[in-house]
């Protein structure tokens, strides 16, 4: 799924549009507020949905090659966090939706879940 489609589903706003020169193909999704959980499941090229807005979210994304981050419930990260993400070339998106709702919408729209293979769960 393209990042632009995901932004539409999320009714989201891009917080650092300067780095969105072109659209990205997103390989799958992961929703978590615990950074080690993200690092445990996520594969390169994913979108991360989270309720946290601190610099560690961006660092975690950078380490795991997360392609974009969506902050839920309309949360606005501090400017330092936006600056860090811009420097690391990671698009930040703010959405008014909650975790359950946006995960559900994206999953239903066909975005692959990176949580299904965890510990042999599901598959």
């Amino acid at each position: 799924m393209k990042l632009s489609e995901i932004i539409q589903h999320a009714k989201g706003t891009v917080l650092n549009p300067s780095i969105l020169a072109h659209d990205y193909e997103i390989s799958g999704g992961c929703g978590a507020d615990l950074m080690s959980d993200v690092l445990a499941v996520v594969k390169p090229g994913a979108v991360l949905l989270t309720g946290l807005c601190n610099p560690q979210v961006v660092r975690t994304a950078q380490m795991a090659d997360v392609r974009a981050i969506i902050f839920l419930r309309g949360k606005q990260p501090p400017t330092e966090v936006i600056a860090l993400a811009t420097q690391e070339n990671i698009p930040l998106i703010s959405s008014d939706m909650g975790m359950f709702e946006l995960c559900g919408r994206l999953y239903r729209a066909g975005l692959h879940s990176f949580e299904t293979n965890w510990n042999g769960f599901h598959e």
């Binding site: 615990l34 080690s36 690092l39 445990a40 601190n54 560690q56 975690t60």
Partner: peptide
């Protein structure tokens, strides 16, 4: 509150 304490860090490292 910063998103740590999942108790998965060392497990992730091992992986």
């Amino acid at each position: 509150s910063m998103g740590f304490g999942a108790g998965m860090g060392l497990v992730n490292i091992q992986r």
